[in-house]
Amino acid sequence: MHFRIFRYDPDKDEKPYMQDYQVALEPSDVMLLDALVRIKEQDDTLSLRRSCREGVCGSDAMNINGKNGLACVTKLTEVKEPVELRPLPGLPVVRDLIVDMTQFFNQYHSIKPYLINNDPEPDRERLQSPEDREELNGLYECILCACCSTACPSFWWNPDKFVGPAGLLQAYRFIADTRDKAVNERLDELIDPYRLFRCHTIMNCADVCPKGLNPAIAIGKIRSMLAKRVI
């Protein structure tokens, strides 16, 4: 199978280049990550992140034939040759398929991604109805792979100012949690020309999410909460 892979090692390369690989696959090689592991056997200088190989840890996000996705859950039968692989767009490249995710995580941290509730903790669990718990479905499952944020043109332009779809999805995950007592503060911190409102509902986020989540809907809900508050 034929692959074209983005290569760049700042230790020796003046500029990035695309490298062609032909690799003979075994019947057990089902996913793109399997092929990449095979390629790495031929050429151990190819660098990429990977861990769980089942789409839950979020390590091996990359740009696959022009679209962001996870290599470990991308079927080889579903990608066109030559398979062109690039690092996630919009973030600085550390090496080969590895990007510097600092800005992405800074934005995640900026939304205070933890439950805020200063009431005295009960001896047992806090109670929450199944219906209230259901509000968190489609939100808490995020794996922080950054496929969405790095597919978002608004994030490409303002990664330092726009929270981005992943961060906003998590912002809403806490806003929607009946156990969280900081809804107003959370909303306050998103009123800003950039942090929330740079979202132009281009919807690339929902299109690429490997977990089938939809940050655009969450962003829409935050907007409507803000609108209601103004009234």
Partner: peptide, 20 residues
């Protein structure tokens, strides 16, 4: 330790009475 996790915000599934 399970109750602590719940207090940290872990989204446990719930029973009708609101318990884990």
């Amino acid at each position: 330790v399970v109750y602590e996790l719940e207090h940290y915000g872990m989204p446990f599934d719930r029973n009708e009475d609101g318990t884990i």
